[in-house]
């Protein structure tokens, strides 16, 4: 156990060192490698049992020359949870894991080639909303595992970029192939897929579709659509996703109120951010591996987040899940600090 922790730490350290010592010649002042991420303390209460989770999630981004970027995100956490079975006190478990460790080659204005361990481009949540300093809820949507092949990460190659972009509309795409990997830090299933999105910047409307095919075991197909609408002068952002697999399907819709955007709100109110998320999952046939609930489930999530100065935010949320296998309530709170600084003093 101890040796395993040390080896995991070495993997992350090697990734960090790759970026800290550039090999592509002298960097421009504005291209200094950076360390960003979030550090937080999260609590989650489910059925009267509370789990305490101190977590840090650092991100490294290091340009090499003018066309390459090495980037990585890790998650390091400890969970303290009740012993259960009538015993008092808490026990803990540690987790150190890489969310991604990838090298991006910016080939031209329309194409970026990605190699390594990267977030699977299916839907929007996995790539955009999983960082702890971005997500509004401590829990991912119920359909998260559909199309992201359970692990959320792929090991292989990806082509992505902006196919075209005008002031009125842009089309971006991502296509990938992943090999199977059982490595503890680079766990992935053999799969292929991609995503394409149309974005209308003037109305800030995005609509996209995703496809994924699992190329091992049952060879399942996954399909999804997403719609985001975030009008420029509105206090409200709306996001939604639908995903369908061979044995189940579901969707989530989220509305987020941004009082920070209101010129008439006072200083206190500008920090407030209420969020509502509605989810449904539908089970068509049993599959213990697709990650969705074993029975049809409805869930309503309510969050009240507060943005403090200096990139500190507090998240509080209440979730009510209704299912024929039993209803449950989940309360969660968290405080997260977002950090961003250069690895050394630039020019």
């Amino acid at each position: 156990m101890h040796r395993s922790k040390i080896s995991r730490a070495w993997v992350f350290a090697a990734g960090m060192l790759l970026g800290l010592f550039p090999v592509g010649g002298p960097l421009l002042g504005q291209d200094t490698p950076l360390i960003s991420g979030g550090a937080g303390f999260i609590t989650s209460t489910n059925g009267g049992n509370t789990t305490y989770i101190p977590v840090i999630s650092p991100v490294l981004a290091a340009p090499l020359g003018s066309h390459i970027l090495v980037e990585s995100r890790a998650t390091i956490l400890d969970s303290y949870f009740p012993r259960g079975n009538g015993q008092t006190g808490y026990k803990s478990s540690s987790f150190v894991g890489l969310s991604y460790l990838q090298m991006d080659y910016l080939a031209n204005r329309h194409l970026t080639v990605v190699a390594g361990d990267f977030l699977t481009p299916f839907g929007t949540y996995n790539e955009r909303l999983t960082p702890i300093w971005i997500s509004n809820f401590e829990s991912a949507p119920l359909i998260f595992s559909l199309g992201t092949m359970n692990t959320g990460s792929s090991v292989g190659g990806m082509l992505r970029g902006s196919a075209f972009a005008t002031s009125k509309v842009s089309l971006d795409y991502a296509g990938y192939f992943s090999a199977a990997s059982t490595n503890e830090q680079f766990n992935a299933q053999r799969s292929a897929g991609g995503r394409a999105s149309l974005y209308f910047p003037q109305t800030r409307l995005e609509i996209g579709t995703s496809y994924g095919r699992l190329l091992e075991g049952e060879h399942q197909n996954f399909a999804g659509v997403h719609l985001w609408w975030e009008p420029a002068d509105s206090l409200v952002k709306f996001r939604s996703e639908f995903a369908r697999g061979a044995h189940s399907q579901g969707y989530w819709m989220e509305s987020e109120f941004h009082l920070t955007r209101s010129p008439s709100a006072n200083a206190f109110a500008r920090g407030l951010q209420p969020v509502v998320r509605w989810q449904q999952t539908f089970r068509r046939s049993p599959d213990a591996r697709d990650g969705l609930p074993s029975a049809d489930t409805n869930a309503a999530d309510f969050a009240l987040d507060y943005h403090f100065p200096h990139d500190v935010r507090i998240n509080t949320s209440y979730s009510r899940q209704l299912s024929s296998t039993g209803n449950r309530n989940v309360w969660a709170t968290g405080i997260v600090y977002r950090f961003l600084f250069p690895t050394w003093r630039g020019k």
Partner: peptide, 12 residues
């Protein structure tokens, strides 16, 4: 954030 990392932020 410092301008020294603005290019890196944008590349990311």
């Amino acid at each position: 954030f410092t301008p020294s990392i603005s290019g890196t932020v944008l590349r990311h």
